[in-house]
Design a protein around this nucleic acid. Structure first.
Lengths: 205, 205
DNA sequence: GTCAGAATTCACCATGTGTTGAATTCTACG
DNA sequence: CGTAGAATTCAACACATGGTGAATTCTGAC
C-alpha cells in the first residue's frame, strides 16, 4: 500500500497548467459574482485545487483579482482608432468599436466584472475610474479639443457606454440584451455623435 | 444602587423613534456599501441599537433591505409627465426631470443602492430590472408608439440614464460628478432626444 | 397599582471567510 | 542515485457574519 488511490497531499503528477486554470476559474467567478461574492474556496474548487494553492500563487484575494482582470484588448487603442474617423461619423465609429470590442470573448467579461466590483468595493471603484479616465475618456476628450466642455461631453459619452454595458450585461434589460450589434450601432452612434460635435443644442430652460 | 448608569438590558426610556433610526441607518449603509457590504451589526451600531433589535423589527436582512428601499417619489409619474411635453422637447424634459429627481434627498440614494446591489446580487438584479421596465421604460416606449423599435429606443434612453447614475454617483467620474444639473440637462437632453424621435439616422455600415 | 405586552439587550450558535504553517509528493538537475 | 526546490495538500486559526432564544425593563391601559 505505497500508493493509495487519491493522493492525499503533495504534488500532483503531470504537467503544471494549474496556475492558468486558477486564473480562468477566478475570471469566471469574479464575472458571475463580483469581487466580494466570489470566494477563494469556490474558485479553488472550480479549478480542482486546494484554496491554499491559490494564495500561494497570488498572495491574497486582491492579488488574484488584479491578475484575473488583465484586459485582453487595449481599449485606449480601440477608442483612439474610432476618434480618427471623419468628424461627423465618430459617434457611429465609437459605437461600432465599443459594441464589437464587447463581443470579443473575454473582454466584456472583464469590464463587467470590474463594474460589478466597483459597485460594492471602494478600491475597485478607484481602479475603474482610473481605467475609464485614462483609456476611454482621455482619447475622446482630446479629439474634442481637450477643454473643460469637451471633457464634460466626453464624460457624458462614456457614461452612456457604461450605461449600455450595465443594461445589456448586468441588468439585462430585455430589448438591449437581445438586440444584435448591427442594429444597435447606428442608434447608439447617433446619440454619441450628439456629444462629439460641439454645436450646442438650441433649448432653453 | 437601584439604577446603575448605563442600562444594561431591557427597554430604554423615552419615545420610540428607533425603528425609523434603524431604517435611516440602513438606507445610508446600503447606499454606501451595497447589499452584501452592509452589515446588520454596522447598521445597528450606527443606529445606537442592538443587532437583535434590527431583526426583531425586520425579520431578516432582506426584509430590512426592502423596507429601506421604499422610494420617496414615484418615478413613473415623473417620467410620464416628461413624456407629455411637446414631442421635440421630450428629451430635454426627461433629462431635466431625471436630474431633478436625483437631487431630491433620498431619491438618488435609493436608486443607487439598488444599482449597487443589483451588480452583485441576483435577486436585486431582478428587482431593478422590473423596476426600470415598469416605471421608466414603459412610459417612454408608450410615448414612442409602443412597437418593438420604440421599445429598443426607449431601452437605449434608459441605459443612458442608468449610465449617468453610475458615472455620477458610483464611479464619480470627475466632470460628471462635479457639474450641476442646469449645465448637464441640455446636453443629456439632446442625446436622449435622438432616441425619442423616430427618424432613423442616415449612416451606413 | 397591576399587568400584559412592547422595546430592548445579552449571550450564544452555526457557518463561511481569508489566510497561515507545516507537511507531503513530485520533478529536474547534478 | 541524491537532493534542492517547486507544487500541492492538510489542518487549523482568527474573525465576522446572520440569526436565535431567553431575559430584562419600560409603557399604557385598566
Amino acid at each position: 500500500m505505497v500508493n493509495s488511490d487519491p493522493p492525499r497531499g503533495g504534488r500532483r503528477p503531470g504537467a503544471t497548467a494549474t496556475r492558468d486554470a486558477i486564473l480562468a476559474a477566478a475570471r469566471e467567478a469574479f464575472f458571475a459574482r463580483s469581487y466580494e461574492g466570489a470566494t477563494i474556496r469556490g474558485i479553488a474548487a472550480a479549478a480542482g485545487v486546494d484554496p491554499a494553492l491559490v494564495i500561494h500563487y497570488f498572495a491574497n484575494k486582491r492579488g488574484l483579482f488584479v491578475a484575473a482582470m488583465e484586459l485582453p484588448v487595449n481599449p485606449g487603442e480601440v477608442v483612439g482608432a474610432a476618434m480618427r474617423a471623419p468628424r461627423a461619423e465618430r459617434g457611429f465609429a465609437l459605437a461600432k468599436a465599443a459594441l464589437a470590442a464587447w463581443e470579443s470573448p473575454g473582454a466584456s467579461e472583464v469590464i463587467v466584472a470590474l463594474m460589478r466590483s466597483a459597485a460594492s468595493d471602494e478600491a475597485a471603484t478607484a481602479v475603474l475610474r482610473d481605467f475609464f479616465a485614462a483609456e476611454v475618456l482621455a482619447p475622446i476628450a482630446n479629439a474634442g479639443g481637450g477643454g473643460p466642455e469637451a471633457m464634460l461631453r466626453a464624460s457624458l459619452a462614456v457614461s452612456h457606454l457604461m450605461g449600455v454595458l450595465f443594461a445589456r450585461f448586468i441588468v439585462r434589460i430585455g430589448p438591449l440584451a437581445d438586440t444584435d450589434t448591427a442594429t444597435l450601432a447606428p442608434l447608439l452612434g447617433a446619440a454619441l455623435q450628439t456629444y462629439l460635435d460641439g454645436d450646442a443644442p438650441e433649448v432653453q430652460s
